[in-house]
């Protein structure tokens, strides 16, 4: 029994180390370094990153920006609750607001176009989870996160809240549409 006894040499750091340990430490260290360098590498060569762009924002200010977007670009309403679907121009700034317990508004985007998506919460913390591609971000009140997104596939996506936000958290679900891009940039009717 010796891991529960004092080490055999009083000066334990003089005990020789077996080669098997040295070899393993070397291999493991190389892997650890690879894992570290892969993160900056992906920032340069990968297409899925978050730049870290974010701003402080008050709930009131964010609400205003969202309402501007909705006023300008609403193309239709969905569900009994008349939730607006907005179709902003390709390449523009778009806004998505999280609140208890819905996402506002519904976004309709064009495939292959890049948008500056601003996300924030006006009350508690929420989680932005886009399904089925399964991309997930934290949404914080007071912070406006900016993601440059480029949908690559046409379809109907779900926007799920995956940060616990109270009793109706499980019902906080919305849609996001990605449609074929049309040349002149006008919304199809």
């Amino acid at each position: 029994m010796t891991a529960i006894h004092p080490p055999s040499h009083k000066v334990w750091w003089k005990q020789p180390v077996d080669r098997v340990e040295v070899v393993w430490i070397g291999i493991a260290l190389v892997w650890c370094l690879i894992m570290f360098f892969f993160m900056p590498f992906w920032h340069v060569f990968g297409d899925q990153n978050y730049s870290g762009e974010a701003y402080r924002v008050t709930p009131e200010r964010f609400n205003e920006k969202v309402n501007e977007l909705v006023e300008q670009y609403t193309v239709r309403y969905e569900t009994d609750r008349q939730i607006p679907v907005v179709r902003p121009p390709a390449g523009s700034d778009i806004y998505l607001l999280a609140r208890l317990w819905d996402w506002y508004p519904i976004l309709e985007l064009e495939k292959g176009q890049t948008y500056r998506l601003h996300v924030s919460s006006v009350d508690w913390q929420h989680g932005l989870s886009i399904q089925p591609i399964n991309i997930n971000f934290q949404v914080l009140p007071g912070y406006e996160m900016v993601l440059n997104i480029t949908p690559t596939e046409v379809g109907e996506y779900a926007v799920v809240c995956n940060e616990y936000c109270g009793i109706l958290h499980h019902a906080m679900l919305s849609k996001l549409y990605v449609v074929e891009s049309d040349r002149n940039g006008e919304p199809q009717s």
Binding site: Q131, N134, A158, V160, H169, H170, A171, L173
Partner: peptide, 16 residues
């Protein structure tokens, strides 16, 4: 894609 801390993965009561 299933969320943690989530009562209903079928989203009962949601508009969607």
């Amino acid at each position: 894609g299933v969320s943690r801390r989530h009562w209903d993965m079928a989203f009962a009561g949601s508009a969607f």
